[in-house]
């Protein structure tokens, strides 16, 4: 009896969480444009999706910004982590608080403050400001995923490299980076994922002329949701799901 109760409780929670997405995915294959009536299976909306120039532009913006933002925030974050790790205890704790703060801050605050900064400095908002914003909110996540790897490292490994004749730069590339590589890759994947599905920050830091998928869906939705949006959302969901599975697997096995 208890077992049945436990099972159904779990089923209920999962249903609440995933039923909307399941409905969305099913609807994306609906041949008709009605949201209430099933008119047969079709890939029609997927086809239209790829013929829609607005959507394809937004896709390009989304993916290119995700790649660039992941790339730069990974470099920034990894170097920052190495630097913070080398600090003494108190400045290190201070820097880690500074790192954690932006992550706990609501996205809307990050978004609005970045927007104000760009307006204040008279920087024209668009593709590059959105990229800068994404690098900004990604970097703490990279620091956070690299830090544990640095902590795990034998504290004398770097000194051992110097002792054997390595210059500090050689030691960085041949001892420290190989040791923390798993953390760096996890951080990069995380940054890519976060950037890919960001709406709030992007919304405030771009101009109406440069849209990523999230902001495009939002502005389309105000004019009524078209079935192509179902298809697009379904695709984004699956892509993010795959990325998340990879990140989770990496964090579970430290050896990866």
């Amino acid at each position: 009896m208890m077992k049945v109760l436990k099972r159904s409780y779990l089923a209920l929670i999962l249903a609440f969480l995933y039923l909307p997405i399941v409905v969305l995915v099913i609807q994306s294959f609906n041949a008709g444009s009605s949201r209430a009536v099933w008119e047969g299976f079709s890939l029609r909306w997927y086809g239209e999706l790829f013929r829609n120039k607005n959507i394809m532009d937004a896709l390009y913006v989304t993916v290119s910004i995700a790649i660039l933002a992941a790339f730069f925030s990974t470099i920034l974050g990894s170097l920052a982590a190495i630097g913070i790790h080398a600090m003494k205890k108190r400045p290190q704790a201070f820097m880690m608080t500074l790192t954690n703060l932006p992550m706990t801050m609501p996205d809307i605050v990050t978004g609005i403050s970045l927007m104000l900064l760009f307006i204040f400095t008279k920087v024209q908002r668009g593709y590059w400001t959105m990229l800068l914003a994404h690098i900004t909110f990604n970097t703490p996540y990279v620091i956070l995923s690299v830090m544990p790897k640095l902590k795990q490292m034998n504290s004398h490994a770097y000194e051992a490299a110097l002792d054997l004749g390595a210059t500090p730069v050689y030691a960085l590339f041949h001892v420290i980076l190989p040791e923390i590589k798993p953390g760096i890759i996890t951080g990069a994947l995380m940054a890519f994922t976060l950037s890919l599905d960001d709406f709030t920050v992007s919304y405030f830091t771009t101009s109406p002329l440069v849209q990523n998928l999230s902001t495009l869906i939002y502005s389309e939705a105000r004019r009524g949701i078209k079935p192509t949006m179902n298809a697009l959302s379904a695709l984004m969901f699956i892509l993010l799901l795959v990325l998340l599975l990879i990140v989770n697997r990496r964090t579970k096995e430290p050896q990866a």
Partner: peptide, 8 residues
């Protein structure tokens, strides 16, 4: 070094 500090 004390704890060997080999490169894993």
């Amino acid at each position: 070094f004390q704890k060997y500090a080999l490169f894993p």
